[in-house]
Design a binder for these strands. Sequence first.
DNA 1: CTCGTTATTGCAAATCATTCGCAGTAAAGG
DNA 2: CCTTTACTGCGAATGATTTGCAATAACGAG
Lengths: 125, 125
Amino acid sequence: MTIQRRLILETLESMSSHPSAGDLYSIVNQRDPGIHLSTIYRTLRWLEGEGLISSRWFEEERRQERFDPAIPVDHHHFLCTHCKRVIEFDYPLVDEIIQQFERDSEARIESTAVVLYGLCKNCRG
Amino acid sequence: MTIQRRLILETLESMSSHPSAGDLYSIVNQRDPGIHLSTIYRTLRWLEGEGLISSRWFEEERRQERFDPAIPVDHHHFLCTHCKRVIEFDYPLVDEIIQQFERDSEARIESTAVVLYGLCKNCRG
DNA sequence: CTCGTTATTGCAAATCATTCGCAGTAAAGG
DNA sequence: CCTTTACTGCGAATGATTTGCAATAACGAG
């Protein structure tokens, strides 16, 4: 555990917005101006491999990977298309979809990505 | 409507696999060896704008956009992680998730991306 | 059918997020 | 304090997609 890794992990954990590597860089950079973007990437990749964080791709911002400080246990996401806020949820209904699909198709489901896009409470209206 | 555009659209419509631009290029290229990859991209973008096709990003192959010959009406996807086959489905359960989330969060949902990953009937076992 | 205008193509270079190779530096344990 | 091993900073590479531009094809008017 190096200073940089600790700083990156702490910063990510303090954010609920599922930042991209670049977002994280501009914040971490304020406390450690010498840090390099590639260190951010490598550390995020390492944290992911250790199972401490997980990563997401949202269709809205298809190009940028976003990082989630949560352990990669199944949960799902809402992304506000206006303020970019992320809300997590976990409904048993998703499991019902999996079961129905497995019955209908005889496939075996191993993971899911359920994302809802729209306007949050604050951005409606 | 040029020769190239017609060829690209016909080719996409004949495929159920949700090909990437590169996949499409290697097939279209057999019938029109002079065609350029940028024409594929531009045409796909144009078809998308016309509402004739839609595009998807799957987390499994995060880097590559895949194109769907279907009109962009709400439907959902299964991607076989082994053979890359895509199966489409449309369950009312997804609408129930939307309604439940809208109730819980007071957000307004405008679109969804529901993708299931796993092994299809043929690739299990 | 021919000409002129406008849209589309082919090509090459640019983008942009992410990754990689490498040499220098820091961590960790003895 | 020293040695080994892992991590960082840096710059260059990657790879899918986009863009600028000059050449070409489509389409409508005559």
